[in-house]
Nucleic acid binder design. Structure first.
Ligand SMILES: NC(=O)c1ccc[n+]([C@@H]2O[C@H](COP(=O)([O-])OP(=O)(O)OC[C@H]3O[C@@H](n4cnc5c(N)ncnc54)[C@H](O)[C@@H]3O)[C@@H](O)[C@H]2O)c1
Ligand SMILES: NC(=O)c1ccc[n+]([C@@H]2O[C@H](COP(=O)([O-])OP(=O)(O)OC[C@H]3O[C@@H](n4cnc5c(N)ncnc54)[C@H](O)[C@@H]3O)[C@@H](O)[C@H]2O)c1
Lengths: 218, 218
DNA sequence: CAGGGCATGTGAAACCTTTCACAATAAGAA
DNA sequence: TTCTTATTGTGAAAGGTTTCACATGCCCTG
């Protein structure tokens, strides 16, 4: 039994992120041919609590069997439907510099169904060159190409200074989902989903914990 | 007046992450020679609420002036002390592949005081080669070199399959802070701070929102 | 086919975070 | 100096998330 019809469930960001963790864990378990898994064991593997695992899953349905646990393959399939990763997403990369090229070369994204179809830059020396089988397109062709190739997700790896400008173009081209790597707060209309990956923030978080940690046993 | 002595304040992860945002915003404001900023304006710039900004800052002290706002340079300085970014951190990178090289080439980290001093790999073809002025060291020398160069933070950019093994070595070498890019849940002792940057999770989050978004006006 | 054991699913409680709302108060005007 | 205006700093309220605890119910054994 899967809850589908009640369209106004408010699922929290943390629940969705944990679904990603469950999905990854279940993929590994499936490879190991394990047939079922308990919330306890799944929690242990992802450093969570069993109650949290059960509560998260319960928002979407009842997938387990009392006394036994969850069927690995079936639950994985269910979560893939919830996350929308049971399909292929057409992705474009904008900015083929250090981080942009690294991401284009990363095969895991493709394996997970995020297929980078187009890559853009404004550097004449890069336009036309080949990156892992993809030809760098001119940024001036972006709006047209995004539409023609039915791109649904854009990854932004351009300098922060031009990021807002590019976002405006991307939004104007009808894109509704953007993953941004520039360390800047970008403005988008409410129907566009934006996630910003901020690596400096993670380093600063480590810096904070190192700085403010309890002094080692006085 | 700065709260310093009360050592058991529990500061939430989200507050710390927002401090990073404030810090970045204040750096920009300082460059624009703005002298003061209100919680209202700071909130607007980072898409937060004024109350949140004030509450966050109030955990650490009273930095503002009623009726006027916060002094930009002074607040920036205070936050840099809180985050521990008013100093230099010695960093090592393990794994000089796609993402590792991209991060080593990224000058912003150095500018922020996170200085990559050492880079490691186990690939004989890479060991000894030059990346942005740094020579790739043999992973077998890691424990010794980490100590000799007083490294405090390690960035992990190795394949997931070897990540736990490397973490164990890094921990054995006395490192207390690790930023991990491998999509795997790593085990560390309680006195070691680990942050994992999971880009697939962000793409899956976008996939979820695109899949489950309210259908556009029926 | 009955009973014990085990793990789910879930309200309720506990806990944590954000927002509200206003007294306090500094700056600048008059 | 006193008044006006603006904005902080912060308890209290509201809202959200996690954990607890247990009834429920399926599996497996005998
Ligand atoms: N390199 C990293 O490890 C890293 C880490 C965290 C964040 N970032 C962020 O990611 C972004 C890219 O970083 P990078 O190191 O790859 O920089 P980079 O300079 O190597 O790459 C940026 C690319 O964007 C292209 N570009 C510039 N303006 C453009 C435009 N108007 N249209 C299209 N393309 C344009 C450039 O030609 C270049 O190829 C930056 O915002 C940076 O802050 C990078
Ligand atoms: N490339 C990306 O965009 C990207 C994105 C997200 C996550 N990641 C993760 O980051 C990690 C690195 O990815 P990548 O694309 O750079 O891979 P890569 O294969 O290009 O680089 C990995 C590097 O680690 C080195 N290495 C392997 N075993 C080692 C060992 N035992 N000791 C020292 N070095 C060792 C390899 O020689 C190689 O240089 C992976 O875990 C990947 O899942 C990468």
């Amino acid at each position: 039994m899967v809850k589908k019809s009640d369209g106004k469930r408010k699922i929290s960001e943390s629940t969705i992120k944990r679904l990603s963790l469950y999905y990854r864990a279940l993929s590994l378990l499936e490879k190991e041919n394990q047939e079922t898994i308990s919330s306890k064991e799944l929690a242990r593997r992802e450093k969570l609590t069993p109650a949290q695992v059960r509560k998260d899953l319960s928002f979407f349905g009842s997938f387990g069997t009392r006394g036994l646990g969850y069927p690995v393959s079936e639950l994985k399939q269910q979560i893939s439907e919830i996350l929308g990763v049971n399909r292929v997403w057409n992705v474009a990369m904008v900015g083929v510099g250090n981080i942009g090229s690294a991401l284009v070369s990363y095969k895991e994204f493709q394996k997970q169904g995020f297929i980078i179809k187009l890559i853009f830059d404004n550097d004449q020396r890069k336009i036309g060159s080949n990156h892992k089988g993809l030809i760098v397109s001119d940024i001036r062709e972006m709006a047209r190409l995004l539409r023609e190739h039915h791109i649904e997700i854009v990854i932004l790896a351009v300098p922060a200074i031009v990021a807002q400008y590019i976002v405006d173009e991307v939004v104007a081209a009808g894109i509704k989902a953007i993953l941004n790597f520039a360390p800047i707060n970008l403005q988008v209309p409410p129907d566009v989903y934006l996630r910003t990956e901020n690596m400096s923030m993670e380093l600063e978080y480590l810096s904070f914990t190192l700085t403010n940690r309890r002094p080692p046993a006085e």
